[in-house]
């Protein structure tokens, strides 16, 4: 049975990775699972300098999901390269570094800094709904998507994944713009902007007022967007949004995703990603699937 998949020349032992921001740099979760089982670890977004993030409360539970407005707190690229990368490099898994920024220059600085590091890919987050500048501003206009993609591509020595926002009218337009800018892979979806009001305190449940909705509640939206995008672009897609089981992951793969990320589910089960890998293998055994590639985009 073959579970290997290929993303822009990078071969993953299986299509399952962790979603940025839900898994840190893997350190904490390594006490719960062997990171070498994962197709790849996608790290928390990292910027050129440390970011303090948003005030608390930063999260709120909602039915079948959660809102978060962490605000991309991160220790900055220097600490990340000195501390987190050497840790991850001990494992037999691919390393995908998620990059955030406020300006094009910020993104480019991080991308250049990563060029000489021993990583496998970069994922550029142009879709974070929780920071005032940068983030989503780059992800909601096709011209901006294409421009930032090509700026990053000019500097990157590793394959570039552009992470798209679902908070747009037409996901296909954004996907095509990223492809035109030279993106090697697309990631979707990031969180959907939402709000929760605490009726007892008569205030917003999270300090930032709005937050990004994730978890099983958003899965049908994500599957639909992955499907539509897969019909419209030639580059591979990493699908995510509410994956908590192998069945969920397989929906994305059948809809056209070459790989999948497990995010919010890590919070209810720290071994969620490993369980998804086991479940995909069971499914392949049960239905006598020789190669996982037979499943990718099999539902037209």
């Amino acid at each position: 049975m073959n579970t290997k998949v290929n993303l822009a020349g990078v071969e993953l032992k299986n299509p399952v990775m962790t979603a940025s921001g839900t898994f840190g740099s893997g350190m904490e979760y390594s006490e719960f699972m062997d990171l070498s089982r994962l197709g790849a670890v996608v790290t928390k977004g990292v910027a050129n300098v440390p970011w303090p993030g948003n005030p608390t409360p930063r999260i709120a539970e909602t039915c079948g999901g959660m809102l978060n407005a962490i605000g991309l707190q991160n220790p900055g690229i220097d600490v990340f390269c000195e501390r987190d990368l050497p840790f991850l490099q001990k494992y037999d898994t691919k390393i995908i570094v998620n990059v955030c920024g406020k300006t094009t220059e910020d993104y480019c600085e991080v991308v250049e800094r990563l060029s000489d590091e021993d990583i496998d890919m970069m994922e550029i987050n142009i879709s974070c709904p929780n920071v005032k500048e940068g983030g989503i501003a780059f992800g909601q206009n096709p011209k901006a998507v294409e421009a930032i993609t090509s700026e990053v591509k000019k500097r990157a020595k590793h394959p570039v994944i552009m992470k798209l926002s679902p908070n747009v009218t037409d996901i296909i337009e954004m996907a095509k713009a990223a492809e035109a800018g030279g993106a090697d892979v697309l990631s979707l979806i990031n969180t959907l902007t939402g709000m929760k009001i605490d009726i007892n305190r008569r205030t917003f449940a999270i300090a930032n007022k709005t937050g990004g909705l994730s978890g099983p509640a958003i899965r049908p939206v994500a599957v639909r967007m992955v499907y539509q995008t897969a019909q419209a672009v030639k580059i591979p897609i990493i699908g995510m949004g509410g994956i908590a089981s192998a069945e969920d992951a397989l929906e994305f793969i059948l809809a056209g995703a070459t790989a999948v990320s497990v995010g919010t589910a890590n919070f209810s089960n720290p071994c969620a990603a490993a369980d998804v890998i086991d479940g995909i293998e069971d499914y392949m055994n049960r239905f006598k699937v020789e190669d996982i590639k037979e499943l990718i985009g099999a539902v037209k």
């Binding site: 898994f23 904490e28 979760y29 608390t56 962490i70």
Partner: peptide
């Protein structure tokens, strides 16, 4: 503080 991962990975509970 409100928690999501409970183990130090998600930065919700700062």
């Amino acid at each position: 503080e409100r928690m999501a991962c409970g183990i130090g990975a998600c930065l919700a509970c700062t």
